[in-house]
């Protein structure tokens, strides 16, 4: 009986949590739609969020993109000619950089950097009763705290994906010149003849979805802190873990939808 009651309690709590999460997400979306209609102080929070999440992550994002692009170039240009399929190198580069690894690695970087930061920051604000203070003065914490972070993370995510594509496709060319010199016109011609607009938009759609996941999960976990400061790092860890899982699941679903 104890097992059954504990199972029932757990299911009820999980259902309640899920409903709470969906309600939270709904509130974020509705407040986001109102965000640009209001002239409010949340704009500064948005700029700062893009600065921290996007601009400051550009360096590590670019390094990753150039490294992965160069690795694909070097491996492809040495391995694929053995099968007489040199042209496939550009196809593989486009698929890996723009469709798959670009959005995914960018999402991981943002989750690791900004997701934990958002969760711990909001958790600290809860512990310090700052949220109660916002409410007491009539400020909606979702409108003022969550929406700028939500928009900032999503925009940063999309923009960083564009940069990842740029560095992955073109920046790697510079590195490849050291190992396997190739005329830039030949490289760009082959790349642009195989790169389609659907490849680009596929990566951006994934980036948009991943940005939503990271921002919503991080803010949700930040608000899940109750009163103890020891809950703050736990919230950060949960934000990272849940974000990773949801990002991978979403990646699989989006890929299935695209190739179905």
């Amino acid at each position: 009986m104890n097992i059954l009651s504990s199972l029932g309690k757990s299911a009820r709590e999980r259902a309640s949590t899920l409903l709470y999460g969906l309600g939270f997400f709904y509130n974020v979306i509705t407040e986001t739609l109102r965000f640009f209609k209001r002239s409010q102080v949340g704009y500064k929070v948005l700029i700062n969020q893009i600065l921290f999440t996007g601009y400051e992550a550009l360096a590590i994002n670019a390094i990753m993109a150039v490294a992965i692009g160069a690795a694909i170039n070097v491996i492809g240009s040495s391995l694929l000619p053995q099968f007489g399929q040199s042209q496939l190198m550009y196809t593989i580069l486009i698929i890996v950089i723009t469709r798959e690894l670009g959005p995914l690695l960018t999402a991981f970087v943002i989750t690791a950097r900004s997701g934990t930061a958002i969760a711990t920051e909001l958790g600290g604000m809860v512990v310090n009763h700052e949220i109660e203070a916002y409410i007491s003065v009539g400020l909606n914490p979702i409108s003022y705290l969550v929406v700028p972070r939500f928009i900032g993370v999503v925009v940063s995510m999309v923009i960083l994906t564009v940069y990842f594509n740029l560095f992955g496709l073109l920046g790697s060319f510079v590195v490849v010149q050291i190992v396997n010199p190739t005329p830039v016109s030949e490289y760009l011609g082959n790349l642009l003849s195989l790169l389609t607009i659907s490849d680009i938009f596929s990566g951006l759609v994934k980036a948009f979805i991943f940005g939503i996941i990271v921002s919503v999960v991080s803010t949700y976990q930040g608000f899940s802190v109750n009163r103890s400061s020891t809950e703050i790092p736990v919230a950060g860890i949960r934000a990272v873990g849940q974000s990773f899982i949801l990002i991978i699941v979403a990646d699989v679903l989006v890929t299935l939808v695209q190739y179905a």
Partner: peptide, 23 residues
């Protein structure tokens, strides 16, 4: 942030135009 976004938009537009011209 403005420069960061503008450069990204320009790059994106450039890539789209190049792809469109090539295709």
């Amino acid at each position: 942030v403005g420069l960061f976004i503008v450069i990204a938009v320009v790059i994106f537009a450039l890539i789209v135009i190049l792809v469109g011209a090539n295709q």
